Amino acid sequence: MRFFLVIFFFIGSLVYGQEQLPLRGLAIAAPSPEHVDRFVDFIDRELSLININTLILRVDYNYQYTSHPELVDKNPLSKSEVRKIVDICAKHGISIIPQINLLGHQSWAEDVGKLLEVYPQFDETPGIQMPENYQWPNTDGLYCKSYCPQHPDLHKIIFALVDEVTAAFKADAFHAGMDEVFYIGDQHCPRCSGMDKAELFAAEVTRIRNHLADTGKRLWIWGDRLIDGKVTGLGMWEASMNTTHRAIDLIPKDVFICDWHYERADPTAVYFAMKGFDVASCSWRNSAVATQQQALLHTLRSSATAAMKARYQGMIQTVWGSPEGFMDMWEQKDLKTPNEANTMRALFN
């Protein structure tokens, strides 16, 4: 069966005149312990058959860290459960890139995240209190909290977690998130007030990158904070309206950029590639947009120089619900409903 699938993909590439994109990825939350076996089976039966070769797993604090057990969340993965995921991915040649959200996304809705819960002194905006009932927009401009990248005690803690999670997943890359950072360089922060927001963002990216590079690992981040939201018209979510976009000229070129756009096939991959970065386009639940993004990458690669072609790496399907919810959608095969499962089918089947 697998032989015929390989032949199918090969013939398809000849028929359509397109080579397969180098990167075929899925970004999804790590499963909870009770769903690990099902997730492993899903990788074995489904992801392997559509040639997924990269799995970005949002782990955050859902692992039994030994370096800082105070930061372990309520239902963490054990080493043995992680090993099951690592082994099945190794069997199918799938690279795992674990993710912990760094800088931004230190809270969600009414709840502060584990890092700021345990270490409130790391909060960039301690004067902004979490609401009982979160609503957007709000007078505080609160979407998600950020940590203060200038706090002297911060990095020895988060880098211990980064080292531990990359070792557990036998990963040669790490995803730091770093998207949708609205709180940075706050005027009330005793360390960051008055500092250039682009320089602050670039310094944090570079510091994380350098730590990973010391052990031969690569940094991946979402790309939205590096795009000018005003000039492009992309606004504050898919791009930056607080000047962090200038950091694109201040960070190392070996940082891998995950360029997400969910409502239109915005051609910002060209921007990142021309700045010297490897880039992947990221889709969500709009199949038409996803296939347009993929077609654009094929067009760009077909007419690019060798240097530019190598930077257009491929597609990453993002899933923002639970892994079990995504697996349910995949197995239901409700092809009429716009969702992440159908978008991934459109991309990779």
Rank of each mutant, 00 (worst) to 15 (best):
N101W: 12
E110C: 12
E164C: 10
D172E: 07
G127N: 01
Q135F: 03
C189D: 03
T125V: 12
E132L: 09
A176V: 05
E180M: 03
D179H: 08
I158W: 01
V162R: 02
C148I: 02
T125Q: 06
T139E: 10
D163P: 11
F174I: 09
W108P: 00
Y147R: 09
L161N: 05
Q106H: 11
H151E: 10
L103S: 09
P131M: 05
N101D: 05
C148L: 00
M178D: 00
R191L: 11
L154A: 07
A168D: 08
T139Y: 09
Y143F: 12
V162D: 02
I184W: 03
H151I: 14
L102I: 15
F169L: 10
E124A: 14
T125G: 01
N101G: 06
Q150M: 15
C189I: 01
A171F: 15
Q150D: 15
Q135D: 04
L154R: 12
Q106D: 01
P152I: 13
E117R: 06
A109I: 00
Q121R: 02
G127F: 06
G185V: 01
A168S: 14
I158L: 05
S107L: 14
H188D: 04
L161T: 11
I158V: 15
F174M: 05
G185A: 05
H155W: 12
K156N: 14
D140A: 14
P131Y: 00
L142Y: 14
P152Y: 03
C144R: 07
L142A: 09
P126R: 03
S107V: 13
G113D: 00
F159D: 00
A109N: 04
D153H: 15
E180W: 03
A168V: 10
S193K: 10
F174Y: 09
I184K: 02
F182V: 06
P137C: 07
V162G: 08
Y134D: 00
G141R: 01
C144Y: 13
H188T: 14
N138S: 01
T139A: 06
E110S: 15
W136R: 11
R191V: 07
L115P: 13
A167F: 14
Y147F: 15
Q129N: 06
N133H: 13
H188Y: 14
C189Q: 02
S146P: 04
H155C: 13
Q187E: 11
L103D: 00
K145Q: 09
K114N: 03
D140E: 13
W108Q: 08
T125L: 06
T125R: 15
P120G: 01
I128S: 02
T125M: 10
P120L: 00
H155K: 13
H188W: 02
C192I: 13
G104K: 08
Y134R: 06
P137Q: 02
Q150N: 11
F169M: 10
R191T: 02
E124W: 03
Y183I: 05
V162E: 00
L116F: 05
Q121D: 09
N133Y: 01
C144A: 12
V118I: 14
